[in-house]
């Protein structure tokens, strides 16, 4: 709580400073690069490769926004931030956009004065067990030993979940994810619980990943999304609709391979509006008419970005689950381009 107040104060102070240069879009265009805050490294979401090029699921959002605004997906200056420096970096204007697997919560949105422009990944707390334990549901975990990181919301979620289901467990407190991997592999606990994407990434590093499985239950809501500062609605709109463009593109079947063909004009007026061959959507945002086309060309539509970075063909192997289109039973639902 104290840290929240602290960050809140800092954020308020930063807002006062930030208002002096309100038009982020003008700043970005003047600089020629988008300053994008990312994590210092999270498997599949953001990490530089051996040549120093950033890649990952969150990084793709940065590149799409840069492509929409500046026409060049490489025109991004990545600013690595830790969990402790991320909010001040955004509030003080050091970054224009924070795409750093940040959970959308009430206090961050309202108290810290940020605007979450959407959700690019629906995460939630899950469980990982050894397959030979023969467990297929978290409700069968009565009496299990559970490795859990102390001092996190996952610890509280876990207690709530087991109490609500009237089953008992024995916690094994650990500090870091690396320690948890070692403890779990050494058999110190039957179950390891943390965010499902983190579990999948952890499982991917095991020598015998097939001997472990993630249980289907997700016991908490962790909507991760990009965020911008309060107070610059035009910039917020640009980032929001860039993300929506990626999601809509998948829904409408626009991919990076067929986009050039489709941008010649199609029978579907929404695709035409999205790609700028009909209507004036780009001008309304203060961007070029082919802004969405550039954004989609940067790394593909939402589905392509997912598949390339964290999907089932990658070592991380996450299923779409909640992150499928609403037509496929997921939660992704972009408002119409009209």
């Amino acid at each position: 709580m104290k840290t929240t107040v602290f960050y809140g104060t800092l954020a308020a102070a930063g807002l006062a400073a930030g208002l002096a240069s309100a038009a982020t879009l003008d700043d970005v265009k003047a600089n020629g690069t988008l300053k994008c805050g990312v994590t210092t490294g999270l498997v599949g979401f953001a990490a530089p490769d051996a040549n120093g090029n950033w890649e990952g699921f969150d990084v793709a959002v940065c590149r799409a926004v840069a492509a929409a605004v500046l026409g060049d997906p490489q025109a991004v200056e990545f600013v690595p931030t830790t969990g402790k420096t991320r909010f001040t970096a955004l509030a003080s204007g050091e970054v224009d956009l924070l795409a750093r697997n940040t959970t959308w919560t009430f206090s961050r949105d309202v108290d810290l004065k940020f605007t979450f422009i959407g959700v690019n990944y629906y995460d939630g707390q899950g469980f990982m067990v050894r397959k030979d334990l023969g467990v297929s549901s978290a409700k069968e975990l009565d009496g299990a030993t559970v490795c859990i990181q102390t001092g996190t919301t996952t610890e509280l979620n876990l207690a709530d979940y087991f109490r609500a289901n009237g089953i008992s467990y024995e916690p094994v407190p650990i500090e870091t994810n690396a320690e948890a991997q070692q403890q779990y592999l050494a058999g110190a606990c039957d179950v390891y619980t943390t965010d499902a994407s983190g579990l999948a990434a952890t499982r991917a590093t095991f020598e015998d990943a097939d001997a472990h499985t993630l249980l289907p239950e997700i016991i908490s809501k962790e909507p991760l999304g990009p965020l911008v500062r309060h107070g610059d609605n035009q910039w917020g709109d640009i980032v929001r609709w860039t993300l929506n463009a990626l999601i809509s593109a998948e829904e409408l079947g626009v991919t990076s391979t067929n986009i050039n063909e489709m941008s010649g004009g199609t029978n579907n007026p929404e695709i035409n509006r999205l790609l700028g061959t009909e209507g004036e959507l780009g001008a309304m945002l203060g961007l070029d008419t082919d802004w969405a086309k550039n954004a989609i060309l940067a790394g593909g539509n939402y589905g392509e970005i997912f598949a390339d970075n964290i999907g089932e063909s990658t070592p991380i192997g996450l299923a779409r689950g909640l992150n499928a289109q609403w037509t496929q039973g997921g939660l992704l639902y972009s408002p119409p381009f009209r």
Partner: peptide, 19 residues
């Protein structure tokens, strides 16, 4: 800890976070 990529920052961040 203040997100500079010194030797330890390099290891903890980019390298251990690459797939």
């Amino acid at each position: 800890i203040i997100s500079m990529f010194d030797l330890v920052g390099m290891i903890r961040g980019p390298i251990l976070a690459s797939t």
